[in-house]
Design a protein around this nucleic acid. Structure first.
Length: 727
DNA sequence: AGCACGCCGACT
DNA sequence: GTCGGCGTGCTC
């Protein structure tokens, strides 16, 4: 009998492909090895996902593996198994799953050779050199970081937020010299370790006691309660047992401050994986974790697939964050995969958040997760006071109420900083003609164009189309065009007018798109001078602004009444995250929330009782209506050049599935709330079941039918298991 | 998703 | 006559 292997082929087919293993190959096939294979007219790189398989395919159709690309398997058996499990769970083609688990360089046959990173350390004659000038803040700060860490690579230094220029100046001045090999011994790592409060200590001890076995924790800690310190201590215990740790962070969560904190505590032991790295750097860091050279991986979503030498602890920070869910092709949740990996590795998984997802709170209620609470703010800071500002019938000044402007004045006069939050960038969300009522709509989407005043253009935030800002109405040629509603750009201008003597710093995608510009804005704010920050949710994540004592939330109503049942959960989380930016030990913070519906029960619960009771109330509602996380859901989406084609495709799938009953419901096809986006019409089929196995079974049928259906040209469709948006 | 094959319109 | 448009079908 000839030897057969099953191979994950990078193509979007929900099928396995078997190949002959020719005698001419010297090596025996092993799970997780990359091989070069003929596939149709092409040559592709595949990964062995099963050995010694048998099939009934006629032998003339079978092809043989051409070449083995790895002397040792690239993916360990555990990750091959994870890929198979995930392909099944998410109903996604196995080849695509396995490919996405590999670093980009390993998806091609010839891995690029990366030259080893150059490390820098303080030079020995540093004491004979003139002291750096007091003005050179960046240089002094970098030098002290390097002094504490021992040595750092150019890459790490860049990650920490220092420009190339700063490093080069230090090198040219002779303050730094090349280090030959990374230092084995950490230097001064135990210095300035804060003292834990009793809650933190309890949390650390509980996690410590779970090391070595699979256990799930929800670390629910209010902003400023010292979650990160709990992570660091737990990691210390994990490393002491000669095991590695995986720390997942949201996409924009990897701020230089976070990295600096990990690097200082565990010098030379931290690898990172995030979108800012080049393919070569990613491969190198990936290999450093696989080989066991580095002990800690700090990474975003896809880092959850990194092979570890000895994984002993998994931490998912800000576990409620939407960026853990991939929003295209393979729609996996890195948070959920992390829990699965914990089970595979028999190690504890800690999900941390100040605003836990309802999923995790439900898991706590079901005793699947153990709750660890941090209620005390570290250093004795008290929680900010929160006030609702009823803006019904109030004359607003470009979106800002009189009370909020007065509070801002008081804050600035007291020498503090104010933060004004509005989750809408641009100058104004719509442009209208005062004479004929014409509205600037996007040509390709069912959406209004946003006015970007500074760039003199109209831009669609859904498809990125842009056009010049008209000066007269294109319909009636009148000159009276009016800007309806505020965006961050408008708030910035308005606040500059009101407060001409203080700096107004706007932070949104438009002001931070250039590399490093976010960091320089943040550095500016950290000087502590009175100023006003205006921004979108970018302000809410990752950064803490210790001198902010006033947070103003301009518009919370939008999210509370969104079409998606997760709207209130998300706006509540955002609100608490933004509010958490305010205040610290010696400075009490205040949060003002402008709203048209101050009686809204969810808002009331949030403001008067806090996030936990608010979340419990939402959870009770989900229970009442049997919505996720009580039930399990999936969405099948389709988009095409006509709405009718998308709906017809979904209707055919629906026709093959049973009608809803008490166990199971199927809704749709429904057009998406914004039906036309980037010129394509979108519809969805919503599936919900009491038991996961039932959902799974019906999805299996649906995918099978979907694959076989004659698709109208240009129709695209996808499956989303555990969606975070229904459309 | 690629890529080849194939069957029709406008060019040297 | 043939270059190239993209519809259809296949990939162990």
């Amino acid at each position: 009998m000839p030897k057969l292997v099953s191979i994950a082929v990078p193509c979007p087919l929900r099928r396995g492909f078997d190949y002959l293993w020719p005698e001419s190959l010297e090596q025996a096939p092993e799970l997780g090895m990359r091989v070069s294979i003929p596939f149709g007219p092409r040559r592709l790189v595949g990964v062995i996902i099963a050995t010694d398989v048998s099939n009934t395919i006629p032998s003339n159709k079978m092809k043989a593996v051409l070449k083995v690309l790895d002397s040792k398997p690239t993916l360990p058996p555990e990750l091959v198994a994870l890929g198979l499990w995930a392909a099944d769970y998410y109903h996604h083609p196995i080849g695509d799953c396995i490919q996405q688990m590999l670093p980009v360089t390993l998806r091609k046959a010839e891995p690029a050779k990366e030259k080893p990173a150059q490390y820098w350390q303080c030079s020995e004659q540093i004491n004979q050199l003139p002291a750096l000038s007091a003005q050179a803040h960046q240089q002094r700060s970098l030098l002290s970081v390097i002094e504490q860490s021992g040595q750092l690579s150019r890459r790490q230094i860049k990650d920490l937020g220092y420009s190339n220029n700063v490093l080069n100046t230090l090198i040219n001045g002779g303050y730094l010299c090349k280090a030959d090999a990374p230092l084995a011994k950490p230097r001064d790592a135990q210095a300035n370790k804060p003292i834990l409060n009793s809650e933190q200590e309890d949390a650390v001890n509980t996690i410590f006691n779970a090391l070595g076995r699979f256990e799930r924790f929800l670390l629910d800690g209010v902003t400023g309660s010292g979650k990160t310190e709990v992570y660091l201590r737990a990691i210390e215990h994990c490393l002491a047992r000669q095991k590695q740790a995986l720390v997942l962070i949201p996409e924009i969560g990897l701020t230089p401050q976070t990295l600096q904190r990990f690097e200082q505590r565990f010098p030379g032991q931290v690898s990172t994986l995030h979108s800012g790295l080049s393919d070569g750097e990613r491969l190198l860091n990936w290999q450093n974790i696989q080989s066991g050279k580095h002990q800690i991986l700090l990474g975003t979503r896809s880092a959850v697939f990194t092979p570890f030498n000895k994984l002993g602890l998994i931490i998912v920070d800000e576990e409620h964050d939407a960026s853990y869910k991939q929003q295209d092709s393979w729609r996996y949740s890195a948070r959920d995969i992390a829990v699965k990996r914990g089970a595979d590795h028999h190690c504890p998984v800690v999900l941390g958040s100040a605003t836990p997802s309802l999923d995790s709170l439900h898991n706590v209620a079901q005793s699947r997760y153990q709750l660890l609470e941090l209620r005390e703010r570290a250093g004795g800071a008290s929680a900010p006071s929160v006030r609702l500002l009823d803006i019904r019938n109030e004359a607003l000044d470009e979106g800002l109420s009189k009370s909020l402007l007065e509070a801002t004045t008081r804050t600035l006069e007291a020498g503090n900083q104010a933060l004004i939050f509005l989750n809408r960038r641009g100058f104004s969300p719509q442009l209208q003609c005062h004479s004929c009522g014409w509205l600037a709509n996007c040509q390709a989407c069912d959406a209004k164009m946003t006015v970007h005043f500074g760039r003199r253009e109209l831009r669609c935030h859904h498809c990125d189309a842009s056009e010049a800002l008209p000066s007269i109405c294109p319909q009636c040629h009148n000159h009276q065009l009016i800007f309806q509603g505020p965006g961050t750009e408008r708030l910035e201008l308005s606040l500059k007018r009101h407060f001409p003597d203080v700096a107004v710093i706007r932070i949104d995608r438009d002001t931070t798109s250039a590399k490093g510009s976010m960091q320089s804005l943040v550095d500016d704010i950290h000087t502590g001078k009175p100023c006003i920050l205006v921004g979108t949710q970018m302000l809410a994540k990752g950064h803490h602004f210790p001198d902010v004592t006033l947070v103003g939330i301009v518009d919370i109503d939008g999210g509370l009444f969104s079409a998606d049942f997760r709207g209130p959960e998300r706006s509540g989380q955002l609100l608490v995250q933004v509010a958490g930016r305010a205040g610290r030990a010696d400075k009490l913070g205040t949060v003002y929330i402008q709203t048209h519906c101050p009686e809204h029960p969810a808002l009331q619960a949030l403001v008067n009782k806090g996030y936990q009771p608010f979340a419990q109330q939402l959870l009770a509602e989900r229970r009442l209506f049997s919505l996720p996380p009580i039930s399990f859901s999936a969405v099948i989406r389709a988009d095409a050049t006509s709405l009718q084609a998308a709906e017809a495709f979904l209707e055919q799938i629906r026709a093959t599935l049973p009608n809803g009953d008490t166990q199971w419901s199927i809704v749709g096809p429904l057009p998406a709330p914004m039906t036309r986006k980037a010129g394509r019409f979108r519809a969805a089929l919503i599936l919900q079941a009491e038991r996961r196995s039932l959902l799974h079974q019906h999805l299996h049928t649906a995918c099978h039918i979907g694959d076989q259906l004659n698709k109208a040209q240009n129709l695209r469709w996808s499956v989303d298991v555990d969606p975070i948006d229904l459309f």
